[in-house]
Design a binder for these strands. Structure first.
Lengths: 232, 232
DNA sequence: GAGTGGTCTAGACCACGTC
DNA sequence: ACGTGGTCTAGACCACTCT
């Protein structure tokens, strides 16, 4: 009585995906009701639902309560990206990792940082700059602001022993993250830190993390010339 | 008899998330078994499983078959990003969209493109370059290679009527996408296209899409100076 | 109002990895 | 070996939205 081949939600997902790839259903077309798909494939509706969930997440299919499911017409590129911790990235390249703390001071957030934190008032912050090296060559320059109102305990930590990132991840897991990517021109400080010419194009990754709406940290990572980020 | 408040998997997720944020369980700590969590919260195990699924996807929790669930110790930044279609992005800025096709030719893929396609042999391709304008100002330069072996029909399409991206998305939905981000220096062609100085730092987004292992298209989008990508 | 997806439940069995 | 997460099922009810 049990449906002879075992129907996994992945196989159902791939089956439906196949219908779309083979143009049985084209972008804009309406897909059958979940129940009919379940009947056709000989599985439970919940399995179809689970499959559709993933097809929806990747943007291939759109679903509406009364309107059924349809193949997306113009979907944006959507992808799950994973940005490694600098130390992990460098070591996975087979290079030796080291780091140097350039500066560390407690100071109120300047307006630009305040804006990144979506804050109305100037937050008391810990500001740090560091370089991470791969085989002794500068790999990335990190400019970090940590809100002391959200993470007061970090002020007491010896950050030459444990990296700020590591301490934060362990002691104050974040909730939400904003990321931004851009290209900037090396200014004097960056050119010195990354040992490159002034005005060299550099790739910059910015992250702001939150815990229950309270800002934790804003980090600008500026990479060595020629760096390409290929998230997972 | 029914558990009085309705327990949604989202509320269960938030509850568990709250335990972690409040340091009831810290990174590295083991979480209770699904069944015990279900009992504590008064819901079905499947609801806990659904909640855990999301906590796992965002990297906050790690699960192993026999070993139970634990709060992740050092997690990389993981986020779902969504890169809008250029036309949509420009229009959502409240600007008028226009585009100009700079070149179009059928030619074998050069080695660099072949490598991006992970191909062993030189694929026959359609190569196009275009500029997309926002209120008449150059917004992004697009350099696209389409594999004619995977998408032979595109050769017949009038791409001044419908954009290549639109045609591909409608007629050949992709399976898989690789993305890469970098900073480059404006060369002569880009400086002319984007109306900027030579050697200006420019942000570049590269995407390669696939359908069932066959390469569809490789696109390099190079943005106007100062552009910042803030995915969703 | 009615039909669709959205969700929850209770139970069962499977598969993996640790003990 | 055995306990944990992983998955599937069948059924029920809800909520949205289109008609």
């Amino acid at each position: 009585m049990t449906p002879s081949p075992r129907h996994s939600w992945r196989s159902v997902r791939d089956e439906i995906h196949g219908w779309i790839l083979s143009a049985r259903y084209k972008p804009g077309d309406k897909l059958p009701r979940d129940e009919d798909i379940a009947a056709e494939l000989g599985c439970a509706r919940s399995t179809v639902v689970r499959a559709m969930q993933e097809l929806t997440e990747t943007g291939l299919v759109e679903r509406k309560r009364r309107g059924g499911s349809q193949v997306s017409q113009s979907r944006p590129t959507r992808a799950m990206i994973e940005i490694p911790v600098h130390k992990v990235e460098i070591e996975s390249l087979g290079k030796s990792y080291s780091t140097r703390l350039l500066s560390r001071e407690e100071t109120p957030a300047p307006p630009t940082v305040q804006a990144r934190f979506r804050a109305q008032t100037a937050l008391s912050c810990l500001h740090m700059r560091a370089i991470h090296f791969a085989d002794g060559a500068p790999f990335v320059h990190e400019d970090r602001w940590v809100s002391l109102e959200t993470a007061p305990d970090i002020a007491k930590v010896d950050l030459t022993e444990i990296s700020a990132n590591e301490w934060l991840v362990t002691n104050l897991p974040y909730d939400e993250v904003d990321v931004a990517f851009s290209a900037i021109s090396a200014d004097t400080a960056l050119a010195a830190a990354l040992e490159c010419e002034l005005q060299t194009p550099l790739f910059r990754l910015e992250r702001v993390t939150w815990s229950q709406g309270a800002p934790i940290t804003a980090v600008q990572s500026t990479f060595h010339p020629g760096y390409i980020l290929r998230p997972q």
